[in-house]
Design a protein around this nucleic acid. Structure first.
Length: 317
RNA sequence: CCCGCCUUAGCUCAAUUUGGCAGAGCGUUGGACUGUAGAUCCAAAUGUUGCUGGUUCAAGUCCGGCAGGCGGGACCA
């Protein structure tokens, strides 16, 4: 039990609430869900949550992935038809990342117009202030000079989703935090049980921006070609000696060390020869300025090309 | 339904009272400097001026219509 909790917490920012998590772990087949707005590219940021879902699956959870087509529509991401296509593509990406057999993929529009669901949304609408709803969308909403009513319906629907999907855990990136907290507050008011909310950290963009995001093009997509991975990493922001906000250090933390004890760094003799670094060693040597950024970049490039090889393979078949 | 205002490069905005070759900053791209990127320096690219009709030798600029947006008013039997 304690062991499971430690595993679940690993690589997350917060679990709200840990005591409730214990109760959930006692259940027979608890349900964990994450919702994704269909997106043109599935990138490493998405992959962090997918990997966490995989882990939850291995710990006995049933996984539900919401392909949130209506949410994307409300967020101005395109026409319903375009979004439906993107959703199919995303589903394939998620499968390529390993969520194949025991994962239930659910299209939002399949249930988000039903009576009980919309009733919950209307109930929540009477309980939620405009400001609170808008504020919850700060990190999620597409920036819009003229914000639409849609952006305030969005968090209410996300709350209703949790009830409809009967989830015990709602997993999401940290940008979801305010919506999730709104949900934890709102659901009990409807006499419903709020899920445990788990938030994963946000990856910095390759350009050093606060957030890796498909709209900014500062990401590595899970199905990027080897060439794309190379050039993207080569052009990445990577200040010497700095660990904080360094996207390549973050990639190492989230994509290398959960799976490998050592990161292999190959470099010519004139630069000191090859190295194999544990996480602690990497952080130490890099922050001391004793590992050249280019060596780190080359190592991460080689690693990520291999890491994502099965994904590319799956996507191409 | 009525009135007023707004719409110019990817973004923020210029374009002299009184029509005269559509510009800047940021961003983007390319080079220089670095064993990476960034910073810095140098260079370059980018426009159906919301759409549409008209006046004029000449319209971003003046007139009409339309669309979208913002603000207000009216209606509240």
């Amino acid at each position: 039990m304690e062991d499971k909790i430690a595993k679940i917490k690993e690589g997350t920012v917060e679990v709200i609430d840990e005591n409730e998590l214990k109760e959930i772990l006692a259940k027979d087949k608890p349900i964990a869900y994450t919702g994704y707005e269909p997106s043109g590219k599935i990138h490493l940021g998405h992959a962090i949550t997918i990997m966490k879902l995989k882990q939850l699956e291995s710990l006995g959870f049933k996984i539900k992935i919401l392909l949130a087509d209506y949410h994307a529509f409300l967020n101005g991401k395109g026409t319903v038809e375009e979004i439906a296509e993107t959703a199919e593509y995303n589903k394939k990406c998620f499968k390529a990342l390993g969520l194949i057999e025991n994962t239930e993929y659910i299209l939002g529009s399949e249930f988000q117009t039903k009576g009980e669901y919309t009733n919950n949304v209307y109930q929540l609408a009477t309980l939620t202030t405009l400001k609170r709803a808008r504020r919850s969308m700060d990190m999620v909403s597409r920036e819009d000079e003229n914000p639409k009513v849609a952006s305030t319906i969005y968090p209410l629907m996300q709350t209703a989703d949790m009830a409809a999907l009967e989830c015990d855990i709602a997993l999401g990136g940290l940008e979801q935090r305010k919506i999730q907290m709104l949900a934890r507050e709102g659901l009990p008011k409807l006499g419903l049980k709020a899920p445990v909310c788990i938030h994963t950290p946000l990856l910095h963009g390759l350009d050093g921006d606060d957030k890796m995001s498909s709209s900014k093009g500062n990401f590595i997509a899970v199905d990027d070609s080897e060439e794309d991975i190379k050039t993207k990493i080569k052009q990445s922001y990577c200040p010497k000696g700095e660990i904080e906000g360094n996207p390549l250090i973050e990639i190492a933390e989230h994509f290398v060390y959960p799976f490998e004890d050592k990161l292999i760094i190959e470099r010519p003799e004139k630069f000191g020869g090859n190295l194999e670094l544990s996480k602690e060693e990497l952080l130490k040597i890099y922050s001391e300025g004793n590992l050249h950024p280019m060596d780190l970049k080359n190592a991460i490039t080689n690693y990520m090309i291999e890491f994502l090889r099965p994904v590319r393979k799956y996507m191409n078949k």
